[in-house]
């Protein structure tokens, strides 16, 4: 994953409260999960409340911004396709889902799980040490580690040049 800023709106030193930081964390995990992983997670919450769409899944373009080295000046990396949706459960909990690409079904499942994660009862099941979120995080970490290992194998040492930090 390129080191792009996904938090542009909150870039003014405004520290997010812990509840919002935790929600951002699980939304980031869910956004990278496969449809099967999301289905497995929803299956763990059999008595999920009904919901209405506040914003049915819709696909559009989002301008992705990056920073050189993660802390340089902001620049526009390019546009990417994003599908988003928002729902409200009958108990008033609002769930939202943003995923890269056009998979409306995945965005809908992310919104569903976002709402369930805000209910303490389901949160404990989903976020437990062996729960679906941990599974997703583990798979993502393994993918990144594999990618790093593949990249490291192709490393070339240039002895004539000073390596940058």
């Amino acid at each position: 994953m390129p080191n792009t800023s996904s938090n542009t709106a909150r870039d003014d030193g405004d520290a997010a409260p812990p509840a919002r930081a935790a929600r951002a964390k699980w939304l980031a995990l869910l956004a990278r999960a496969t449809r099967d992983e999301l289905d497995d997670a929803i299956a763990l919450c059999p008595d999920a409340p009904d919901f209405v769409w506040l914003r049915a899944p819709q696909t559009g373009l989002v301008l992705v911004q990056g920073r050189v080295g993660g802390n340089g000046d902001r620049f526009n990396l390019g546009e990417t396709t994003v599908t988003r949706c928002t729902l409200r459960q009958q108990d008033g909990v609002v769930g939202t889902g943003y995923v890269l690409g056009r998979d409306a079904e995945r965005a809908a499942r992310v919104a569903r799980l976002d709402a369930l994660m805000q209910m303490p009862r389901h949160h404990d099941v989903l976020a437990s040490g062996t729960g679906p979120l941990a599974t997703i995080a583990g798979r993502l970490a393994a993918t990144v580690a594999q990618h790093d290992a593949d990249t490291a194998a192709s490393r070339v040492e240039f002895f004539t040049m000073v390596r940058e930090a």
């Binding site: 769409w53 506040l54 914003r55 409200r88 609002v94």
Partner: peptide, 8 residues
Amino acid sequence: DWSQLQPG
């Protein structure tokens, strides 16, 4: 208050 939010 998002709990008052209605579908558009």
